[in-house]
Amino acid sequence: MQSIIHFSRVSRLLATFLVGLLHSVHTVAAQQGRPAWERVEAIQTLLNGAVPRPEAVRLDLPSVTQDGSSVLVTAEIDSPMTPDNHVEELYLFALGNPSPELAEIRFTPLAGRASVSTRIRLDRSQTVVALARTSGGDWLSGSRDVRVTVSGCLSRDATYQADDVMQTRVRVPPRFKAGQASDIRTLINHPMETGLRKDAAGQPIPEQIIELFQARLDDAPVLTVRLHRAIAANPYLVFHMAPEQSGELTLSWEEDTGETTVTTAEIRVD
């Protein structure tokens, strides 16, 4: 539960004094030769004056995408993921969206690999940025430009089947090797209503999203994700886990209404 507290603290900081303070503290000199995105408010706030090591987060996403409503992105950092040297936090931003925040991911060493994949919404052509903080307090970054086009033969209707909302799916490997990371994929059916759309009568449709995902192996947290509204409908996650012993994996998805769905999967370790 600690992780949740942590996230809300970050958001609170985001909204309070740091914004105003850091703007003035940041000297022009420190910005010279730095990528322009470091001056984006949400990112400045997060970095709090730290200078991230560039290209240390590998961002994998298509350079051109024909469907901005669902773009697969993978962020990965080389890290031993040991208790005293691991990636603790990963932040994803899409700078050209109405709000830049995509997701905040908190890893534990149990994840075994600092890597996550998800599907995001991109409003237009823009830069996607990843920032990561290690347990040692270092900041790492990565960025990729993405061009969003709508292909002539591809224009697709906004069809979302709402009959199975909150249904989840999970896939775990049949067996893990002790201490070795293998991937887990999961998905929940949910429209991720952004709050930016209007209904047929022209009334705004209120925001309704999945905002929190947690994975635990028995009682030990593996990964926590705070999702924002630019995560694509039917939130999808691929992450890793390196268990030492068998146990029960619990995945919980929490909607901003408080409604939560929990799924479990048996984990077998050889």
Binding site: D67, C153, L154, T159
Partner: peptide, 9 residues
């Protein structure tokens, strides 16, 4: 492998 396709409607 997609959630929508060309001329779907």
């Amino acid at each position: 492998a997609k959630d929508g396709f060309s001329k779907q409607g």
